[in-house]
Design a binder for these strands. Structure first.
Length: 293
DNA sequence: AATGTACCCAACCGCAGGGTA
DNA sequence: ATACCCTGCGGTTGGGTACAT
């Protein structure tokens, strides 16, 4: 936390005349009235979204700027879809949550008309319980279902050691690589000592691991072949957690099935057009739920 | 009908990242 | 490089409501 934030916290900044809109005295809190809604909605309809800081004053609302934004984003926006979450939406939420974790804004990006708050609430109140219950039926605790511990070496950059499922979105640093040839029959199965191992014989596969970070911070592992060309052999997401012994615990492994046709002509593959290829959340469509643990 | 409990969801809060002066 | 500002995200809270006893 920087100095400003420390001082803001203890209230010093207020006395310097640079208080944020939310720290002013006399601002109303709690439920919004119809009248406030009308004022806010009509103001935004005329002046557009943004510049939240000045909005309450200009609109004549005794509300914090953040409260105004939240009210607009979560309730007043005209494109918000009302009504119950459909079965399809529910399925999608579960799949996306499996893929992305609690990154509600990314999940909401795939659910037009829904707000992150709505999805978050729905998950916390309904879906999390249901998925837990289903998981306990499908995968009862047993010795066959334990987390494998795999060592990992410093060859992985510090940034790539962190859990693949981030709690915060981070910037895009790379695109999904377009393969130059079809994948081999071997799937990349193990991440060990900073190298990739094949599924069946535990032999090391050529090349070092390159971590390709999608825009949301989820790590996509690919393999660089010996001549330096990029060949996407497989696509997988590992959720790695650092265990108490310092090793990384393999929490979940998902293989994303890439079919041959896709490699014939990547550019025409319906889910992986130019835009989709750069957006990790688009890849959710590639996951077959039957493959999920 | 009264009371207790569980649940839902709108709203709040702390924090972080990016932009700008 | 630093301080400040704005915005957005995700976790949490608490009021309202439905349901059970």
């Amino acid at each position: 936390m920087d100095l400003y934030k420390q001082r803001e916290r203890v209230g010093e900044i207020r006395s310097m005349g640079k208080s944020s809109c939310c720290s002013k005295e006399g601002l109303k809190k709690g439920a919004w009235t119809d009248w406030e809604d009308k004022i806010l909605a009509s103001f935004i309809n005329v002046h557009g979204e943004g510049k939240w800081r000045n909005l309450p004053k200009r609109a004549g609302l005794k509300r914090c700027c953040r409260s105004c934004r939240l009210r607009w984003v979560n309730y007043l926006r005209p494109d918000i879809k009302r009504g119950n979450i459909s079965h399809d939406e529910e399925e999608l939420i579960i799949r996306l949550h499996n893929l992305l974790g609690n990154r509600w804004s990314l999940i909401t990006g795939r659910l037009p008309g829904r707000t992150d708050n709505e999805i978050k609430n729905y998950w916390n109140s309904t879906l999390s319980k249901r998925t837990k219950a289903q998981a306990s039926i499908k995968y009862p605790r047993s010795s066959n279902f334990t987390h494998k511990t795999i060592p990992i070496e410093s060859k992985l950059k510090e940034s790539s050691k962190r859990s693949a499922i981030q709690t915060k979105a981070i910037g895009c640093s790379s695109k999904v690589m377009v393969p130059t040839q079809p994948p081999t029959s071997q799937g990349i199965d193990k991440l060990r000592d900073g190298k990739l191992y094949s599924t069946n014989n535990s032999q090391e596969m050529g090349g070092d691991i390159a971590t390709v970070e999608a825009h949301n911070g989820t790590q996509v592992l690919d393999s660089l072949n010996s001549d330096g060309g990029s060949v996407l052999l497989s696509f997988e997401i590992n959720e790695l957690r650092k265990a108490s012994d310092g090793n990384f615990e393999e929490n979940r492994m998902q293989l994303l099935p890439f079919d041959e046709a896709m490699f014939e002509d990547w550019t025409t593959y319906p889910y992986l057009n130019d835009n989709a290829a750069t957006g990790w959340d688009s890849l959710a469509f590639l996951i077959d739920t039957n493959d999920w643990p």
